[in-house]
Amino acid sequence: MLILLPPSEGKAFPGDGPPLSLDSLSLPELTPARESVLTALEEVSARPLAEARTVLGLSSRQAEALPRNRELRTAATLRAADLYTGVLYDRLRLGELLAGPAAARVDTSVLIFSALWGVLRPSDTVPPYRLSMGVSLPPLGPLGAFWRAHLTETLTAVARGRLVVDCRSTAYAAAFRPGPEIAEHTVAVRVLRQTVVDGVPRRSVVSHQAKAVRGAVAHSLLTAQETPQTPGELAILLADLGYQVELTSPARGGGPQTLNVIVSG
């Protein structure tokens, strides 16, 4: 099983580990691409404040991250498991999982997407940064398309023969779209809220709460005694764990299935 996660906008700061070593990160074939994005981010972050903010899409409050972006090569690092914060990671509790007996399995079962690093495993150590996948970063262009060109072959090999549980947001899904070989074993997790209006159940897509639910689902899968091999087995396992789920087929053949997780209220 392979769980794909988005990063979080919020990040822990400061780190307490040694400076960045690109060569030590997992999936070393991505090192040249990581170096390209890192260099481009440093250069943009060194531009005049207003210009840098505009390119990176930063608010005045977020502009405090620009000095950090300029010092990424020398800044203290921390594990990706500890770097990312927010409701998804609060519910996922990666640090706790990496301290347990299944740490090695957890580390190889999770990939965290990043606009700067492409993807990270939970044990990879990097400095805090600010960069969104929705940015068009000079001279590389839109980062979703840039990373898709560099991630597709690598992640197709990583995912081959495994059930892929996709918990990413739309922006980060653009960086890797499973091809036919992988899509039939891929499940995209969607969270729906169910309410009853005049006795009629109604459902709607939720956003903020979806992050918490996806974090909880990922934690449940990583701590379960069973490892599902197919979308059907995934749905059965989550139902056994107390989730209300529905598995739906793609509108067109060959695409990922969707796993709807239903929450009330």
Rank of each mutant, 00 (worst) to 15 (best):
249 S>V: 11
77 T>E: 10
104 A>K: 13
97 L>H: 05
73 R>H: 11
185 H>L: 15
135 V>M: 04
92 L>T: 06
46 A>S: 15
236 I>S: 08
29 E>R: 11
190 R>W: 01
185 H>T: 12
101 P>F: 00
25 L>K: 12
254 G>K: 14
259 L>M: 09
193 R>P: 09
22 L>Q: 13
169 S>A: 12
36 S>G: 02
237 L>K: 15
152 T>R: 13
24 S>P: 13
205 V>R: 10
47 R>S: 12
183 A>H: 10
200 V>Y: 07
112 I>A: 12
154 T>S: 11
208 H>S: 01
210 A>F: 01
107 D>R: 06
197 V>K: 02
259 L>P: 11
57 G>P: 09
173 A>N: 01
82 D>Y: 06
127 P>Y: 11
255 G>E: 03
82 D>K: 08
75 A>K: 06
209 Q>G: 10
91 R>F: 02
206 V>M: 06
94 L>Y: 03
60 S>A: 12
49 L>I: 07
36 S>I: 00
121 R>T: 09
80 A>H: 01
169 S>E: 02
178 P>Y: 07
14 P>F: 09
90 D>F: 00
44 V>T: 14
12 A>R: 15
116 L>Y: 03
221 L>Y: 01
29 E>V: 15
255 G>W: 00
33 A>T: 03
24 S>N: 03
262 I>V: 15
34 R>K: 05
13 F>T: 12
90 D>K: 05
168 R>S: 00
9 E>N: 02
193 R>K: 13
118 G>D: 11
206 V>G: 11
22 L>P: 11
39 T>P: 04
220 S>C: 05
265 G>A: 08
105 R>V: 13
203 R>F: 15
179 G>H: 11
81 A>P: 08
254 G>W: 07
261 V>T: 04
83 L>A: 09
12 A>N: 07
102 A>G: 01
96 E>G: 12
162 R>G: 06
134 G>W: 04
219 H>T: 00
222 L>C: 03
25 L>A: 14
161 G>Q: 12
70 R>P: 03
231 P>V: 04
92 L>C: 03
101 P>V: 05
177 R>A: 06
259 L>D: 01
84 Y>L: 02
225 Q>W: 00
73 R>M: 10
96 E>L: 07
203 R>V: 09
174 A>I: 00
62 Q>K: 14
163 L>R: 12
103 A>H: 07
192 L>R: 14
225 Q>A: 13
126 V>T: 14
149 A>P: 06
170 T>G: 05
76 A>P: 02
100 G>Y: 03
69 N>D: 10
84 Y>N: 00
144 G>F: 03
101 P>M: 04
158 V>A: 15
19 P>I: 10
67 P>Q: 06
103 A>F: 01
100 G>L: 05
26 S>L: 07
265 G>D: 07
85 T>A: 09
67 P>C: 02
61 R>A: 15
197 V>I: 14
214 R>N: 00
29 E>Y: 06
183 A>G: 13
61 R>S: 14
57 G>Q: 09
101 P>L: 11
139 P>K: 10
2 L>G: 08
169 S>N: 07
141 G>R: 07
189 V>I: 15
19 P>K: 09
169 S>Q: 06
167 C>R: 04
41 L>T: 12
15 G>M: 10
265 G>T: 08
230 T>G: 01
39 T>Q: 07
258 T>D: 15
13 F>Q: 12
70 R>L: 13
152 T>D: 15
205 V>M: 10
